Simulated assay, not measured.
Amino acid sequence: MSKEDDNNINNIKEKLKKKRQNTDYVGYTAKKPEKEKTEGNLEKPPASKKVSKKAETEYDELSLKIEHYKDFEEKSTAVKNKKTPGKNRKQNVKSAGNKKSGGKKSADSSTKKKKSKGQKTKKPREKFKFKRVHLYIGIVIFLVLLLGVLLWYVFSSASDVKEINFEGNSLVTETELEERIGFSTGDKMFSISAGKAEDNVELLPVIEEVSVERDWPNNVTVNVNEYKAIAYINSEDLYFPVLENSRIQRGYPSAPRNAPIIYNFEGEEFDALVAALNEIEVDILESISEIYFRPTDNSMRRIHVFMNDGQEIVADYETFSEKMNYYIGIRQEIGDETGGIIDMEVGTSYLPYDSADAREIKDNIYNEPSQVGYIEDINEALDGVRSALGEIGNAAEE
């Protein structure tokens, strides 16, 4: 192109720039100003200077190609980039990356804004903090529940006595104990008196100790510790236990077991024999079958003993326990023979049945002992009291 053409093109560009400065751009289409809209039909644009045909053709082509005034700046930058290709490429890459990242960020921010508009923001929940008020509330709730359970238990059948268990009784029957304790099944657990029941049961001479305990929720246990039966006495074909405390359990007859039957013992002799039996070993005591009180003029404390193995023994009831504890050794020395009597009154000797001493002892076994002097005196005194009371009664009737 010639210099004239270049000058014409430059003039056209300047005119276009001035024209664009006076117009508003929306997109890539130019809008005329309001003055031009209102006065466009009235005023005609000023006539342009005459230009050559070549300039008009070039002007039309350029007007079609030009879209925005910024394109001229991009072309100028492209020319510069040709001169410095390495640096400009790097800058272009960076700008492109920034545009992409900026686009993504803007897109993300727009989506976040839309979500924030559509959804309400949730406030973070505060963590539960335990305070003293919560402790008081928990205690009150617990007490209310406990009170409710207690009221239900008291006024319902859940508090009734369902079962009474008796333990340790052998001489006393369960029916006797049930009558003594003062309560039965069906009574309320909280209404029974354990102390009163224990006092009533302890009145029985056979009872040494007793304990009445509630086994919640519905049971009661009566634990009894009885005095040991160390002998039995015979009365009208009935046997009554003699306890280790020298008391006779009358009214509770039972078959003799693990203890001897004693005959004709009264007063001091009875107490002395019971004391001796308490000191004898259990296995030896259980091997004794019968004991008779057989005093003589020469031996006022003589007793005659029959063993379960068939052996007979005579002894003094005061020294009986000491010598009787050696019975097992003495029996082993004698062997299996039972043809005599073991004499433990003074020393310890074996008397064959054909000896004079053995025959004398055998003759006195079934003879009733004569009463001791103090017993006769007591009986005479009692007879005098009876007669005096009889006379008083007769005088009162008259």
Rank of each mutant, 00 (worst) to 15 (best):
V242W: 04
D271Q: 06
F293L: 11
S211N: 13
E208W: 05
K228P: 03
R247L: 11
Q249Y: 15
E286F: 06
R257S: 12
E269A: 08
F270D: 00
P256A: 08
R294C: 08
A275T: 10
N218I: 11
V220H: 04
P295Q: 03
S254Y: 05
E208C: 03
N219K: 15
Y292A: 03
V224C: 11
S246P: 06
F270Q: 00
I207F: 06
L203G: 15
K228V: 07
E213G: 13
N278L: 01
R250K: 11
I280D: 01
V212D: 09
I262M: 00
I291M: 05
V210H: 11
F293T: 01
E268P: 00
E281Y: 05
P217D: 07
A259G: 01
S246V: 03
R301S: 05
E281K: 12
N258M: 12
N200I: 06
E208G: 08
V224D: 02
I230Y: 02
E269Y: 05
S246H: 06
I303W: 04
E266C: 09
Y292L: 08
V282Y: 03
M300L: 13
I233C: 04
E198M: 14
I291W: 02
M300G: 06
F270Y: 04
P253L: 11
L204N: 08
R250H: 10
V206S: 06
L285P: 01
E208I: 13
W216Y: 15
N234R: 06
H304S: 12
V210Q: 07
E236V: 13
D237M: 14
L238F: 08
F270V: 01
D283Y: 12
